[in-house]
């Protein structure tokens, strides 16, 4: 058990004591979302600007089934993961054929397509009003309508997701994806099918997004139209980058900072996305590398100072 895991466990236990249960749940849900993106962004070097496609689609499908057919929680989660993976396979198939800027633009454009479908298909999605009335059914005698019970459920799923993601990035597959990130031509020369592996990473990322989407829908009881919009896709990119995309734990730190930031500025001013935009710009100009790297830089600076004082004395 490493120090990072201890820190994660401590955070899971301490967080509900510090903030409202709903916000605490939201942080872990966003962290799952970020883990999925980070497999693409941090490990495969693919900048997807359309992750909310899978998040929102899963939320809508599972939410619809929960609302109208009252399906089991695990069925809802399973379907959400499946919807996330399948939609990611569809989108990914088109996107992985191009690289660089084209890849980014395509993920964004297809995100817009799903957005407009959700926007216009009002009979199912509720259009601009969102899809309200999603319940949290009782599971094994536990009433998930209790915020704390639901928090524990979300936190457990987050820990499972983190463990699975850790296994993925440390597996041979994870190493090959990193090889593709470093040099795709060489990875192909060694015999790996770059496009197929990128698609696989895309599908796994989509599955994580799907899980997060369903948990989000159950947390707030509604799938808002924004959940499939491009701002949401941008937010998760931001959260992952401020956390530090090079590290497995980066998105977790990022989702902390992001949710805390947006929750605290959104009560100050109705035009808070403006402040968020300002925050994006500041981070990009001054804090490239994210929190994890800033922390590492701080440590090495302290070490150097300690060495310097020791040498001086």
């Amino acid at each position: 058990m490493s120090r990072a895991w201890l820190a994660v466990f401590a955070a899971v236990i301490l967080l509900p004591l510090a903030v409202r249960h709903a916000i605490a749940s939201e942080i872990w849900i966003f962290a799952i979302f970020g883990l999925g993106l980070n497999l693409l962004l941090g490990y495969t070097g693919l900048l997807s600007f359309g992750q909310s496609t899978f998040f929102g689609s899963a939320g809508y499908v599972s939410g619809y089934l929960l609302k109208h057919y009252g399906i089991n929680v695990f069925a809802a989660l399973g379907i959400g993961v499946l919807v996330g993976a399948v939609s990611a396979a569809l989108v990914g198939y088109l996107c992985v054929q191009r690289s660089g800027l084209y890849f980014i633009m395509l993920t964004f454009a297809l995100n817009q397509m799903f957005y407009f479908i959700a926007y216009q298909w009002t009979t199912v999605t509720g259009g601009e009003d969102g899809m309200p009335g999603i319940g949290r059914p009782v599971l094994l005698g536990v009433d998930f309508r209790q915020p704390l019970a639901y928090y524990i459920f979300v936190a457990l799923l987050f820990l499972v997701s983190l463990w699975v993601m850790k296994r993925i990035v440390e597996s041979p597959l994870g190493k090959i994806l990193q090889a593709i990130r470093e040099n795709e031509v060489r990875a192909q020369a060694v015999g790996y099918d770059g496009a197929r592996l990128k698609l696989l990473a895309f599908v796994i990322g989509g599955a994580f997004s799907g899980l997060a989407g369903v948990l989000y829908a159950m947390l707030f009881g509604i799938v808002p139209l924004e959940a499939i919009g491009f701002v949401f896709s941008g937010n998760v990119v931001f959260a992952t980058l401020i956390g530090g995309s090079g590290s497995l734990y980066g998105p977790i730190v990022g989702s902390f900072v992001f949710i805390w930031l947006s929750e605290s500025v959104s009560v100050v001013w109705a035009r808070w996305p403006l402040l968020l935009g300002v925050a994006f710009v500041i981070v990009v100009i001054f804090f490239r590398g994210g929190c994890v790297e800033a922390w590492a830089r701080f440590w090495s600076w302290r070490e150097r100072r300690r060495m310097a004082t020791r040498l001086a004395s």
Partner: peptide
């Protein structure tokens, strides 16, 4: 690209808000 994207995205939020 990731930081450039974040910058222009932030800018678009600032402009539209």
């Amino acid at each position: 690209h990731d930081y450039q994207l974040l910058f222009t995205f932030g800018l678009s939020l600032i402009l539209s808000e």
